[in-house]
Design a binder for these strands. Structure first.
Lengths: 208, 208
DNA sequence: GTCTATAGGGCGATAGAC
DNA sequence: GTCTATCGCCCTATAGAC
């Protein structure tokens, strides 16, 4: 599957082999995360799973942190490819579906949370760059959707789209954390409430 | 200050000395966190600051994780004692002020985020218990304040108080993270917007 | 380019002496 | 109650084989 056929880009020499190994490493790393969780995952554990030494991982990815970033990014890419979030839903619902999808992959939410926590520490450029860009992209994409929803009257027009996007992402992430620690927390209900608050004429229609 | 005077409970022998040492360890640990950040803090670094070996810390706190939990709890306790959050403000504003206050202590937000991330991993009972209880207490306290605000008409009565509490905590935590990674994120503005959304007759007063 | 072997320094945790 | 000594593990870096 990862084997390059003749005609694949740059199949000569060991370049293609390196690409294949990278993919194989990421495959195994995702497996290790699913089984052991993000915190207990070490270079040696991943290397053992792949069947190489931990130094080989360093060769391909530089540091453990960069490997972790790529593991998450690859997982997210595959999820989006295999189970794309359907369109035609509200920005809040979109974030909820995305979070629910991530939750189906064992260890993925833990890895994400761990990377974000690491990103807040100084001296962790890989995690910091990952988290910063991930939030920036998420905000940019969601801001556009909020603007569309505002244009078609599904979200109040008096709200700043960028602030709504940041708020929705924050609420989704934060509620997921609370729900993971206490399943009694009504994550879905709270997000639905936020969705309602962002909608026009919510006060008129629901308030006593 | 932490020195037990005659008449203090159980001043005999080395019991009181152990209590004083615990406080001294926590003092130094808070210092180390302020200077080195949460991620780079090790038992040996704290021990060096205190002037003991890392084995002594294990003796008093059991594990690094438990020490970290106590460091955060003690910092939070001192903050609340020395700079209590003023009353008479909205639940959202209350969370914002609390977050702003924590932000003044170097390393505190990083430590908190790190503990929450650790809590999501399996096999970390100290961090998990800390985070679970902290969220539960925060939700319970905020839920009461939301109910009060609803009773006096400052928050829409058609909203579930518990859901509002969970949402406000999530928004506060999540926006703080985004703001730390990108100061361009309007954390204050987004929280003010949420405050407005929760208020009765927000739609009438601002829309259009 | 790819990978193994190995070494260096740091970590949390434990056991036992004082 | 605190220490020294030690264990086993970790990440990172480098030298050299293939």
């Amino acid at each position: 599957m990862a084997q390059p056929s003749p005609g694949s880009p740059r199949a000569r020499g060991s370049y293609a082999k390196g690409i294949a190994m990278r993919q194989e490493i990421l495959d195994s790393a995702i497996e290790v995360f699913a089984q052991r969780g993000a915190g207990r995952t070490s270079l040696r554990a991943i290397a053992e799973e792949v069947g190489v030494t931990h130094a080989a991982l360093i060769h391909h990815f530089g540091t453990l942190e960069q490997l972790l970033v790529e593991v998450y990014s690859e997982s997210a890419r595959r999820l989006e490819r295999e189970h794309p979030v359907p369109g035609g839903v509200s920005p809040v619902e979109r974030m909820r579906l995305s979070a629910e999808r991530n939750h189906g992959v064992p260890g993925m939410v833990q890895l994400y949370t761990s990377l974000v926590a690491t990103a807040l520490e100084v001296g962790h450029p890989a995690a910091t760059a990952f988290a910063t860009e991930r939030f920036a992209q998420a905000r940019a994409a969601l801001t556009e959707q909020v603007r569309d929803a505002q244009a078609s009257g599904r979200i109040r027009r008096d709200l700043d789209a960028g602030q709504v996007a940041a708020l929705v992402i924050a609420a989704s992430d934060g509620l997921q954390t609370q729900w993971l620690l206490d399943p009694g927390v009504d994550q879905v209900g709270a997000l639905a409430m936020l969705d309602r608050l962002l909608t026009d004429r919510a006060a008129e229609g629901d308030a006593g």
